[in-house]
Simulated scan of single mutants.
Amino acid sequence: MTGLRGGRGALKRPVLSPLRYPGGKSTLYQNLLSVVRENNLTSGTYVEPYAGGAGAALALLITGQVQHIVINDLDPAIFAFWWAVVNEPSAFSRLIDDAKLDMHEWARQKEIYLTADRQDYMGLGFATFYLNRTNRSGALNGGVIGGVKQQGRYKIDARFNKPALVERVRLVGIHSKKIALLNIDGLDVIASYADRPKVLIYADPPYFDRSGSLYLNSFTPDDHCKLASVLNLHAQRNWLLTYDNVPQVHALYASRRRELISLNYSAHRVVKAQEVMVFSDALVTESLTTLF
């Protein structure tokens, strides 16, 4: 296996997602772009069954590399955020402009996040966004940047650049008709889209190592096995997968091509992690070995 480019060594990529997402893969933009072009998928649809921040999806769509994207997340709070931004970008932008960045408002938004009606997409979606932008590492169950007493080096507003965030929301709104939103099991998304023409599926599921509560949802060992079964069943379709580099992954995908990638994460401190990218048999990946 060779090493693919990611993290700090990656070519410049657009940062377009309004969310800060722990473990996000927007850093793989150049690799995904190469896959799209090499497999003649520039007129196709890019699908993320476990979207989270959807950084790579938005980058590929807004730069015109794909024609449509599918954003799916089973977490109702993350889905609410995407629904609000895609369907009501102007209203969402006004909430950003009017947002108070202090501990009183942080506590209020946290209460909304915990207790809001799951169908209140705007209220729940903005609370999710607010916590994501004001919590350490973007973790919704994490503590506020700067601490409750706001005595840290960085304060609650450190990752809440209102003009930049409004611009990102505006760009999502401009492309809203090319974005499909789903709030279902990722396995159902894969099964639904795998056999369609001109589709690339990128699966970035919760990992085996759940240290630090980075992921909003978690997988059981059975969930990992079910995902492998579905993807291996569609080995002749266009998909790729990233995982933590653990023996279970190599066992589950022993018949598929695998490459090691290095990514930088900043959960409390910058950590370089080695992960595994798995490819379907149908996917052409010759150019990826040059991306060091």
Rank of each mutant, 00 (worst) to 15 (best):
C225T: 14
C225W: 13
C225N: 13
C225S: 11
C225V: 15
C225F: 10
C225R: 15
C225K: 14
K226F: 04
K226C: 08
L227V: 14
A228I: 10
S229E: 13
S229H: 14
V230W: 08
V230D: 01
V230F: 04
L231Q: 05
L231G: 08
L231E: 03
N232Y: 10
N232F: 09
L233A: 15
L233H: 15
L233Y: 14
L233K: 15
H234W: 09
H234A: 10
A235C: 11
A235S: 15
A235P: 03
Q236R: 14
Q236M: 09
Q236F: 02
R237K: 15
R237F: 06
N238T: 08
N238W: 03
N238F: 12
N238C: 12
W239I: 10
W239N: 09
L240P: 11
L240C: 15
L241T: 04
T242W: 02
T242G: 02
T242N: 11
T242S: 15
Y243L: 01
Y243V: 00
Y243C: 00
D244R: 05
N245K: 09
N245E: 09
N245G: 00
N245F: 00
V246A: 01
V246N: 01
P247E: 05
Q248H: 06
Q248G: 04
Q248L: 11
Q248Y: 08
V249D: 00
V249N: 00
V249E: 00
V249C: 08
V249A: 03
H250L: 04
H250M: 09
A251S: 15
A251L: 13
A251D: 10
L252F: 12
L252P: 07
L252I: 07
L252K: 10
L252H: 10
L252E: 03
Y253K: 09
Y253I: 07
Y253P: 04
A254F: 07
A254E: 11
S255K: 14
R256C: 05
R256D: 03
R257E: 10
R258S: 09
R258H: 12
R258E: 02
L260I: 08
L260F: 02
I261G: 01
I261T: 10
I261Q: 01
S262G: 01
N264W: 03
Y265F: 06
A267D: 00
H268E: 02
H268C: 01
H268I: 01
R269F: 10
R269Y: 03
R269D: 03
R269E: 02
V270E: 11
V270R: 05
V270T: 10
V270P: 00
V271E: 07
V271N: 04
V271Y: 02
V271M: 05
V271A: 04
